[in-house]
């Protein structure tokens, strides 16, 4: 079960898919703001530490991604909790 799954899945058009893919590519290509991306691994580790206090999660069940479009950034958190919790 995935809580934190705030974004309801809606049917994406192919143009929507293209846009999402491009936003990720562009945010990587514009990697100029290194200090901005540098904190991601650390944030991920700290999140895992905090969550681990309450439930058992694996390293790869916590995903953190930073997407940049123009002058706004979106931090995407995806934490998958084990089914036993449900």
């Amino acid at each position: 079960m995935s809580i934190f799954n705030f974004l309801k899945q809606r049917k994406d058009t192919t143009a929507d898919i293209a846009k999402k893919r491009l936003q990720i590519i562009v945010s990587h290509q514009r990697g100029g703001d290194e200090e901005q991306k540098d904190f991601i691994p650390k944030l991920q580790q700290e999140l895992i530490n905090v969550i681990s206090k309450y439930v058992k999660v694996d390293q790869d069940q916590v995903k953190v991604e930073l997407e940049r479009t123009g002058d706004c950034s979106i931090l995407e958190l995806n934490i998958t909790l084990p089914d036993t919790l449900a």
Partner: peptide, 10 residues
């Protein structure tokens, strides 16, 4: 308009 092509805004 059909969603087959990126929009201008995209």
């Amino acid at each position: 308009a059909k969603g087959d092509m990126l929009s201008v805004q995209d």
